[in-house]
């Protein structure tokens, strides 16, 4: 059985699901966000061994039969509506997380992209930037700091072309409205805000000139590279996550073998089976590593380029049905 952990309505799962069904494997798509409010999980240890069961909607599944787990976008545990006190809801959430962590640990299965602690480590920019350098990627000179006195020297070292970006994207509001932090070019007048650097770790890098940006999706040892013409739109010039599909076109790119190999090696070295890697191709033809998201989105890449990523994921997930682990 394949276990898919993701929120209901996840369109990316729907891209893979028909391919899994065509391969004739049993699939259980479950959202841990149902637990404990609308699902019952039981772990039983006795002389016969360990039994891990999930009961929901009148059906019981034996999770220990899972040969592969796709840890896509699972929801956070949710207390039942009757639990109204905030501290009790927090307690339910915390204990549920503990239980789920243990449960996932007991599943003797292949994980895509990986188990949660491995994913957290792989997602950490300190970890993967250091590893990328070690593997021979070109990485921009990088300072990650909360020391205000580092800002002006970094600006000077970058010749006045400095960018700042966050360690991780976390939700926050200003004046009650959700805001996002993109990669931001540091202008000279922005140096006056240097004292603000003290409040969180900030990544400072020289602005890397781009011919195009590349989104490399690695599934196991398969590499799919999309080229994003981010320089064709003023909106995506500094960060393609501003999205402008009309102008910043997506197309298939063929990576040099050594760069592709390095991408596969990076994913493997981080202990994950999947990775969405952001690279810049400079006007001089150099491939520069920016970051890796070990559980990054790829659906829009397949939609816009036709790269068969969903097939590769279906292949990877079902390989354990026949191959020994």
């Amino acid at each position: 059985m394949l276990l898919i952990l993701s929120e209901p309505g996840d369109v990316t799962v729907h891209m893979v699901l028909p391919k899994l069904k065509a391969r004739g494997v049993d699939v259980l798509w479950w959202d841990p966000g149902e637990y404990p409010a609308d699902a019952r999980l039981t772990a039983r240890f006795d002389a016969d061994g360990t039994r891990l069961t999930l009961a929901r909607d009148g059906e019981v599944a034996d999770l220990s039969t899972a040969t592969a787990v796709w840890f896509r976008r699972p929801g956070a545990p949710r207390a039942a509506e009757q639990v109204t006190a905030a501290d009790l809801r927090d307690r339910v959430g915390e204990l549920s997380e503990w239980f789920l962590e243990g449960l996932w640990d007991l599943l003797d299965a292949r994980w895509l992209p990986g188990r949660e602690p491995v994913l957290r480590r792989a997602h950490n920019k300190l970890v993967h930037l250091a590893l990328a350098r070690k593997l021979g990627f070109a990485v921009p000179p990088t300072t990650i700091t909360n020391d205000p006195s580092e800002l002006a020297p970094a600006y000077e070292r970058a010749g006045g072309r400095l960018i700042a970006k966050p360690m991780e994207h976390t939700p926050f509001q200003i004046d009650g409205e959700a805001h996002t932090v993109f990669t931001t070019v540091v202008e000279r007048r922005d140096l006056v805000g240097r004292s603000r650097i003290a409040h969180e770790p900030t990544i400072l890098q020289p602005y890397v000139q781009k011919a195009v940006e590349l989104r490399v999706t690695v599934v196991g040892d398969q590499v799919f590279t999309a080229e994003i013409a981010s320089q064709d739109s003023p909106r995506t010039r500094d960060d393609w996550r501003h999205y402008d599909f009309d102008r910043a076109r997506h197309s298939v790119h063929h990576l040099p073998d050594d760069v592709a190999r390095r991408c596969v090696d990076l994913v493997a070295a981080l202990g994950v089976s999947f990775g969405a890697i952001d690279l810049i191709l400079t006007p001089e033809g150099e491939y520069v590593f920016l970051e890796i998201n070990p559980n990054g989105q790829w659906g829009w890449i397949e939609d816009l380029t036709g790269l068969p990523i969903s097939t590769a994921i279906a292949d990877w997930l079902t390989a354990g049905e026949t191959d020994p682990r």
Binding site: L151, A164, K165, P166, F172, I174, E177, A178, H179, T180, V181, F182, T184, R189, D190, V192, G193, R194, S195, R196, I197, A198, H199, E200, T202, R235, H242
Partner: peptide
């Protein structure tokens, strides 16, 4: 003259973009 008081917002938060900006 330009002044930035320390209001507790980090440099990145101070340069954040409204979710519906574009």
């Amino acid at each position: 003259l330009c002044v930035q008081a320390d209001d507790g917002a980090s440099w990145l938060v101070d340069h954040a973009t409204h979710w519906a900006a574009s």
